[in-house]
């Protein structure tokens, strides 16, 4: 009886895999959508691994959490994201605001928020979540530099991620890098955005640096911008898109050009 059930389960698994074909779930890496970054990384970041995101300075905490969330969005696709925060992070950096998640391109209803009292709780919840293969991505935000978050703890997380294929993102808003077993380590700072009309702040921009990579890639810096509509990163240093072409041979239209720059709705 048990044999038959096992055989059935194996068949079902095979069918599920065949049905998905080359869907993103089957792929082992996820792309950031920007060839400039994906190229050196070898096509993207590993899905079944632990990635660390550090804030360059404490005020960059929100940028680091934003970048970590975006990576989780990219890795999870449609599957649910589990985000684990330590209570103190709410006090220090503000609580996670769901409409802000919508603005980053994620439906907050499919995100499960776990609030843990201490770093040990964060790690415990993260392990539990990473071991569940149905989860798309797991983010964990311990505060400060807790003693429990050592090489052993990150190794445990990495092994669990490798076994289940769930991407784990360890976001550290107020900590300095320490030895860990993460596949990649990023340092993130907020970067000036490209101004929109009337000098309004533009799309979220990040100055990211790859500090460490398992494959031994050299450290690199990029300036990227998050594009919610295309669900990918853009080159933050490229020319702004809102340039009105000036035609030399039609003088009557030049005068009307500045008047028609498609006003944005603000608020």
């Amino acid at each position: 009886m048990t044999d038959r059930r096992d055989a059935l389960a194996a068949l079902r698994n095979r069918l599920a895999r065949m049905g998905q074909g080359d869907s993103p779930r089957a792929s082992r890496i996820f792309s950031l959508g920007l060839p400039m970054v994906d190229g050196p990384l070898g096509g993207g970041l590993a899905r079944a691994a632990l990635h660390e995101v550090f804030a360059r300075t404490p005020p960059d905490g929100t940028a680091a959490i934003g970048f970590g969330l975006i990576l989780a969005i990219l890795a999870a696709q449609e599957r649910p994201v589990v985000w684990i925060r330590q209570d103190f992070a709410d006090v220090e950096g503000g609580r996670l605001h769901a409409p802000g998640l919508v603005e980053l391109g994620r439906d907050p209803s499919s995100l499960v928020l776990v609030r843990a009292r201490d770093a040990a709780g964060v790690l415990r919840a993260a392990l539990e979540a990473v071991r569940c293969p149905a989860v798309g991505a797991v983010g964990l935000e311990p505060w400060g530099e807790p003693g429990v978050l050592d090489l052993t703890a990150t190794r445990r997380l990495s092994l669990a991620a490798a076994a289940s294929g769930v991407a784990a993102f360890l976001v550290r808003a107020a900590a300095r890098p320490e030895p860990s077993s993460a596949a990649t380590r990023w340092s993130v700072a907020a970067a000036p955005s490209r101004a929109l009309l009337a000098n309004a702040p533009g799309q979220p921009a990040f100055a990211i640096s790859l500090l460490r990579h398992r494959a031994g890639l050299p450290a690199r810096d990029w300036h990227v911008e998050w594009d919610r509509d295309r669900c990918s990163f853009q080159d933050g240093a490229a020319l702004p898109r809102a340039v009105v072409p000036v035609s030399a041979d039609r003088p009557d239209q030049v005068a009307s050009a500045p008047a028609a720059p498609g006003w944005r709705r603000a608020g």
Binding site: R95, G100, V102, S109, V112, L196, P204, G267
Partner: peptide, 29 residues
């Protein structure tokens, strides 16, 4: 609480295409 059955809820406000985020990621309370 996530264990409770999802009740009928309002829809999230959809951002305008190509607009930068109008609402913050972190809110202080």
């Amino acid at each position: 609480p996530a264990v409770e059955a999802a009740a009928k809820r309002a829809a999230w406000r959809k951002p305008e295409p190509d607009d930068p985020p109008a609402r913050p990621l972190h809110l202080f309370e």
